[in-house]
Write a protein that binds this DNA or RNA. Sequence first.
DNA 1: CCCAATGATGGGTCTTCACCTACTAACTGG
DNA 2: CCAGTTAGTAGGTGAAGACCCATCATTGGG
Lengths: 154, 154
Amino acid sequence: MSETPPSLLGLTTYLLSKTGKAARSRLAARLAERDLRLWHMAVLSALVDFGPHVQRELAARLGIDRSDMVKIVDDLAVAGLVDRARDTIDRRRVTVTPTRAGRAMLADLQAEALAVQQELLAPLTSPEQAQLAALLRRVHAHVHEGPEEPRSGR
Amino acid sequence: MSETPPSLLGLTTYLLSKTGKAARSRLAARLAERDLRLWHMAVLSALVDFGPHVQRELAARLGIDRSDMVKIVDDLAVAGLVDRARDTIDRRRVTVTPTRAGRAMLADLQAEALAVQQELLAPLTSPEQAQLAALLRRVHAHVHEGPEEPRSGR
DNA sequence: CCCAATGATGGGTCTTCACCTACTAACTGG
DNA sequence: CCAGTTAGTAGGTGAAGACCCATCATTGGG
């Protein structure tokens, strides 16, 4: 009765879009419990993986506008998850560093992400989950390097 | 330099979210060239797959609000892709039927979706693409039956 | 010492999206 | 034939996202 049209289920594009949306919204819901959004997690990940960044580098790495990065970093700073420090040699720059609380929070968020993942991929066996991850990783790498369309007109 | 943090790449949740977003936005861009959006395609698919629907059934099947469905059907009707007809025995109901142009358009859109799919999944071999589709189909079926959280608060 | 470039901000706009309400026309059961 | 319910419709709301610009402090080159 409430079946999805088979025409759509035959399109991988559609499946990716739908399951992706489910993944995003479920993870976002978990983050929201801690008053965080996906970008907050992305920023924390970048800081922990690659070490302290100047704000501008952070924005460039994650591909978002630097004025938006300001707000994200601000949220994280207020929550005590990162430290913002003026660079002593170039006082225009602000170096962002993860705090201990920030690292702990990231570990927490990663656990949540894994929980969502288990919930989402429940019907797949472990090797299948790994295979899905491997395939997606390759697709992601391909998509990420050749974004094709910077932004469709507004 | 603009690498994505490995912590994120290790999370299937993240990969799904990202590739899903890429799939959605690319397909949406193709549809936009015809002044259509994803829901328009979904409605056409439902009509062609399952035959004419009363508007309310359409909304229920696709899981969207009936007031939003009104606008989608209206767009399609204006574009000549569907016919709206008052039910003769219950004149409150409006039966929506795909026109010949609507069917042709859907075929067109499906071709576009396949093109996007080829572009997106280029790094994968054919059997790998099939495998990805099969895995995603199972995940989608699972996600779709147990939505868990109807809607997180607003 | 001045000027152009740079980094961080704050502010604002413009969409999209999901949801929700109220209203009208029409049907149905008592 | 009246009351309550249902279908479609119009409209509004609020959040989220991506984008863009003006401002201000700072720096570095000439």
